[in-house]
Amino acid sequence: MDNNLTKIYNRSLKGPLIFFVVIMLLPFIFQSNNYILSTFIMIGFYSLVTTGLTLLIGYAGQISLGHAAFYGIGAYTSAYFTATLQMPSWIGILVGAIIASLVSLIIGIPVFKLKGHYLALATLGFGVIIFTFFKEWKTITGGLNGFFGIPPLSLFGISFSTDFQFYFLIWIFVFLGIFFARNIVQSRVGRALMSIHGSEIASEAIGININKYKLQIFVLSAVYASIAGSLYAHYVTFINPQLFEMMTSIYFLIMVVIGGIGNIWGGLIGAAIYVFLGELLKDIVPKIIPNASGEFEIVFFGVLLVVILIYMPNGISKAIFHFIKRITSNFKNKPVSAFSKKSTGSDIHD
């Protein structure tokens, strides 16, 4: 009876470990190619944010259009504590996470009394208000001129100043983040979150305090975003308010939707598709339409978003995991009975 749990939860660390090793080997292949390294580093920042958001949107079913604010809170707090106050990096990261969790708690209490459209709009409005703080609180943030001279990250006496070094750091954070989130999903808490998405009334009727869980997961996702923001600030060493605008929140949402709800790897997959597709389009489109400028690539993301929501409402990651399952089961030459296919296929929580 012991192995019954594996029929619903894939707790095995094998897949993630293989993936981790591959990711950790990549920089040795592309050591001299800063473009590839920096592209992967960007995917890392976004993955950290979207993994937290996947818990909120994909599992608990609560939309947020304001997460760029928490990303920005992390970035500005780290910038202020390390550049202005000359404190160690870890203090900036920690204080950023604390501020983000306090802010998300304060805003979350009234916000989660709202549903659907109004929830989306309230989080969006909150994002605009925080953006205004970044823009107008010039003594701390430098306003629209931006915040210059953020020192490179240094932790445990190691300085992460090159892309090569930073790559390892961000991806270790990403994997820890996914590991933590995956464990949550495969537990009582994960089921409570999914039950809120499934039916709020039924989940309250079996004793789940839905407001508490919505709030907890909102705070957790804010902390993920804040840590990603802190690391980002140290990586780019210069930040300005536009980086944390409403559009950034919407991009995060797009990544989560593309990657897929209800799968903990969805955030990472969505972030990767978003970054690669964006780079690809910036490369190809100007060859076809020579005078294309600005963020024309949003046309494609717009179309992708609409098409996915209409035809693949569970996102791309479900399809990818089906594919991997098929390949690995063919590889092992395992006879696939109708029953085992059903119970180990689409429903398992990876």
């Binding site: 029929k7 619903i8 009582r188 089921r191 409570a192 999914m194 039950s195 998405h197 499934g198 039916s199 009334i201 039924a202 989940s203 009727a205 079996i206 789940i208 209800g262 119970s343 429903d347």
Partner: peptide, 14 residues
Amino acid sequence: QVFNNMTVIENVMT
């Protein structure tokens, strides 16, 4: 009000 996003057993575990 079954939780459609889960398996049967997860419903009961919830």
